[in-house]
Simulated scan of single mutants.
Amino acid sequence: MTVYTVGTADLKTLRDQLWSAVTQRDEFAAADLVLGALDNGMDAESALLDVIAPVQLKVGAEWAANRLTVAQEHAASAIAERVVAALAHHSGARHTTPRLGRVTVACVEQEWHVLPARLLAEVLALRGWEVDFLGAQVPTAHLVSHLHSSGADVVALSSSIPTRLPAAHGAIAACQSVGVPVLAGGAAFGPDGRYARLLGADAWAPDARTAARQLADGIPAPGLASGRLQVDDLPHLADQEYTLVARSRGQLVKQVLTQLEQRFPAMAGYNEHQRERTAEDIAHLVEFLTVALYTDDDELFGTFVTWTAGILTARQVPARSLRPALDILKTELKDFPRSIRLLDQALAALDGTLAATGTHPGALT
């Protein structure tokens, strides 16, 4: 086993060495590296946020660029989680500050990306909070039950994928209904926190340090608002487009896949794996269209479409195949005006992306 040693100030070297360890699937080397840095004087919060977190961001970026497989990405993430657990029990990570209060940290229902929440939980513990870390995919009913028994002062709610926003909305309202304020965080809420505000969160933070400062400053408890409905926060839901499209997602995926085979001749040569991946891509398109209807946000869907184009290109799949899929969705949803608006905006964004890469938007062969 290779033992990594670093100086406490050389963050770049430390990150580079940790990257080598996690991509070589060497859990022991990764742990030795981080714990050794603590022994050499690095504070635990810096190890968490200035070393482990940036390496994990690089893992995601390398997966998106098709330089890491899904299995490699999962292995690297698993090692990061185990290193964080080892760090939490190191003597250099033990807090000496007085307790500030109790906070519950949880991922919203159906959200499995747990590391951002885990990093926040550890930072808050270091700063003097009693932390109940509930982990990934916490059903809202279980979260509220925990709040009743734990006496938490605040909930820190994490979500990384925008398609979890409807679940996050329900969790925010449920926590507030029992008088507990909600601090939202994670990529799902937007880089500027727009979806946290839209869904009625009491506060939003872009990173763990900001979250810790906001919690220390205090987040006022919400007024009790029993019986609050989704449409109270999002009046556009009254048109029922979100509900109707969400209920027909499975059928929409089947319709798009069937018609895409006729419009995109290259699919005739796809093997079974390629066909499965195409069906998954279509399902993601429909899922993101659905959540864009929930938030009534053009940018959410358009950004996902252009991001998907980049992912496909990195995997040597023609990104232009997205256009006929979007066109088919327009035909299938012709009676839904907000859906048509979102699809038109996404098509314009996609055409701009294709033009920038020198691909003619209408070229299918």
Rank of each mutant, 00 (worst) to 15 (best):
T163H: 09
R197G: 12
G41V: 07
G269K: 12
T96Y: 03
W307E: 06
A31H: 07
T365Y: 13
A93I: 15
G218L: 09
H169Q: 10
T353N: 04
G135V: 13
A355S: 10
H169M: 13
R263H: 10
W63L: 06
L293K: 05
D232G: 11
D192N: 09
Y270A: 14
G302I: 03
K58L: 14
T97R: 11
H236A: 08
A125Q: 15
Q240I: 15
G41D: 10
E241M: 08
I172F: 02
H95I: 11
A167V: 06
A211Q: 03
A88C: 09
A152F: 00
F133R: 15
A203Q: 11
S339R: 06
R67S: 02
L38K: 10
I52M: 07
V286A: 05
L124P: 14
Q56M: 06
I282R: 01
S321Q: 12
L293A: 00
G36Y: 00
L143H: 13
H148E: 01
G7T: 13
L342M: 08
V180S: 01
I52N: 04
Y294V: 01
T359M: 02
H142C: 09
R320F: 07
Q137P: 14
L244C: 14
N40M: 09
L124H: 12
A9G: 10
L343A: 04
L124T: 06
T13G: 15
G128S: 09
L293R: 04
A201V: 06
E45C: 08
T365N: 13
P206M: 09
A65S: 06
K330V: 12
L350W: 00
Q176C: 00
S158K: 01
G92T: 10
A246F: 05
L293P: 14
Q137V: 13
T331W: 13
T353E: 10
A47R: 09
P222M: 02
P265C: 00
A205W: 04
A205M: 04
I161R: 08
H236P: 15
Y4N: 08
G60L: 00
I161E: 02
L347T: 05
L134F: 02
D26L: 03
L115N: 09
V253L: 10
